[in-house]
Amino acid sequence: MRDKSIRELQSRFPYVHAFFDDNAISYAGMEHLSLRGVIEAMSESEREEFPYEIETLEHNLETFIEQMQAFLSADEDTVHSITIFPGTDKSGVPEQFDRLDMRPGDVICIVGPTGSGKSRLLADIEWVAQHDTPTKRTVFVNDLVPESKWRFSISDKLVAQLSQNMNFVMDLSVEEFVRMHAESRMIEDIDGAVQSIIASANGLAGEQFSPETPITSLSGGQSRALMIADTAVLSRSPVILIDEIENAGIDRKKALELLLAEDKIVLMATHDPVLALLGDRRIVIRNGGIASVIETTEHERGILKELEVLDARLSELRNRLRDGEILR
């Protein structure tokens, strides 16, 4: 691989330009040379600034291509199930469940006071704990002891997390932003992905935004909507953690549907009754351990119907107020 010319590398691995860009190596006009050739063609002073031995860089290029190839060909190993086996709570008391199976399409809520151990549970899943974390839980993927790639790969993570306070720090338009993300995920149909993300996000947000809107000027609800749509389409992580979708200007039910349509396992840390009851199950966390797992009952689903009516009424009023109407 290291002896191949840049032109040859480019034709076999179209993404390889990212490696050169991110390492600040410009090869314009030198595509016929190998990586080593380009570095050797640098002037004395350019090379001196260069923080590598050539061998290290060649090794990095090979590793980079291997990782990308693995990422691109990983479609086959889809996740059908994630299973948690019990450990102990903070006091060392064994957790009272046999096994907890999660499958794509499941919506599972996590409830319990702040600091009770919600993030540890998530971390156990993300780190695919093998009796080697403070909780001593064990996590299986597809009924097997998982491969170590889930621990260390940054492009193939088990859990994608939609954090609660979400600020954008980049100075880009919505379209540029989504495009950049799509490129880094090496999606084939980038234009299509960008369009569908923006359209779905607008379907979730109360107020519309355009592809040209700067991301830093999106409202809280719009940012959330954009991130949920973006994660649904671009993330390969089988588990999506949502930390409390607040009410503000976003259709929560549609947001869930969007994620479920992409066959995700959705975990929600929430105490909002509408969301909690939309879930199939609730994991109750206490003192660092899973205290119980509750299936949503028929009676609760009845309550959910009532809540949804109330919820619809609330958002209707909210929209009318926003439009400057007088309520009567």
Partner: peptide, 19 residues
């Protein structure tokens, strides 16, 4: 304090310089 997308883009840039 940043979005999931920004985390992913940032991490992929880091990975490219130190795979």
């Amino acid at each position: 304090i940043v979005s999931q997308a920004e985390r992913e883009v940032f991490a992929s840039r880091v990975q490219a310089v130190n795979p």
